[in-house]
Design a protein around this nucleic acid. Sequence first.
DNA 1: GCCAACACGTGACCC
DNA 2: TGGGTCACGTGTTGG
Lengths: 194, 194
Amino acid sequence: MERNRRKKLNDKLYALRSVVPNITKMDKASIIKDAIDYIKQLQEQEKVMLAEISELDSLKEEKVSSIGDLDFDDLHFMQRKKKRTAQGSSSSAGSPSSPPIEVLELRVSEMGEKTMVVSITCNKKRDTMIKLCEVFESLNLKVLTANITSVSGSLLHTLFIETDEMGSAQVKEKIEAAIADLDSPRSPISSLSF
Amino acid sequence: MERNRRKKLNDKLYALRSVVPNITKMDKASIIKDAIDYIKQLQEQEKVMLAEISELDSLKEEKVSSIGDLDFDDLHFMQRKKKRTAQGSSSSAGSPSSPPIEVLELRVSEMGEKTMVVSITCNKKRDTMIKLCEVFESLNLKVLTANITSVSGSLLHTLFIETDEMGSAQVKEKIEAAIADLDSPRSPISSLSF
DNA sequence: GCCAACACGTGACCC
DNA sequence: TGGGTCACGTGTTGG
């Protein structure tokens, strides 16, 4: 009986050896050692591949969203790929790697004939400042003066702009649209229009 | 002596058990069995992941070759495809179609323990504001408050930043470098980024 | 008392 | 001859 048990155990061991490549020695102990090393190797490889996959996957996401509607994200891809120029702020709008901006409050009020005051409060995440600047620049409103204050996670923007023949409501709409566009860049065109 | 051999073998076996999750029984034979199953599982997973990676990779390749490798036709194709390309002042930093920013004056002075005042004056061209914002954000200095005033072609930036363990000279250098980097995009890809 | 799993000592075999 | 490995039979423990 003991003979049978040993046989089974040996069979298992041979089976183990059969699934492990790079067998150095038929040595019983070496078989197990090789198996251990192999497992560790596989586990590390798994980690690496997993990381790579998720990376490529996120890249793919960008693509997919752009492919149907065309390639805006290719820009990011290119920029990111070239990179090696320091981690620079991932540049412009819509980049999925930078968090969406969260607008807490948006007020637009007329001040005089052609000037109005825009007041935006939002949570300060990475690149928020850039995005807001892009928004203003993309709308190419004439910015007379702007004030940015970041306090404890919030970013307060106050700017005096000059517009011709536009109501405050209209401006507000535009700004809202531009910001929304930034977060979900469904339309590559407007996103490209900076 | 034989005792020692057996001990070593057992140690190997326990080591094997330690690298294998999902151990059902401490049973010697079961350890090997579980190890075998685990290895097979890992191997299959490896195949799957490898396939997935190569798939994603090929997708990436497409993009890279079509863009990173200077494929003008593709660029044109893209532009034409999306037609109505919008007059857009092109995207963010380093874009050749937006004029370089011209810094007229740059002053950095320490205000207190960790805060300093950065004062930048430059000609206001298109996208200047964005670029400046990117510069600050890329240096990720903590911006306490910032004031932007544009008057007759000039753009006055004054910001209070918080730094730790950096002299004003150092900060100034950094800012200058970042701006220079912005103007002379060393990477050819950025030239292609519309 | 049976079965299973284990550790142990021993003889056989091979560089 | 000795260091290394192996298979075998046996004693012991625990379910």
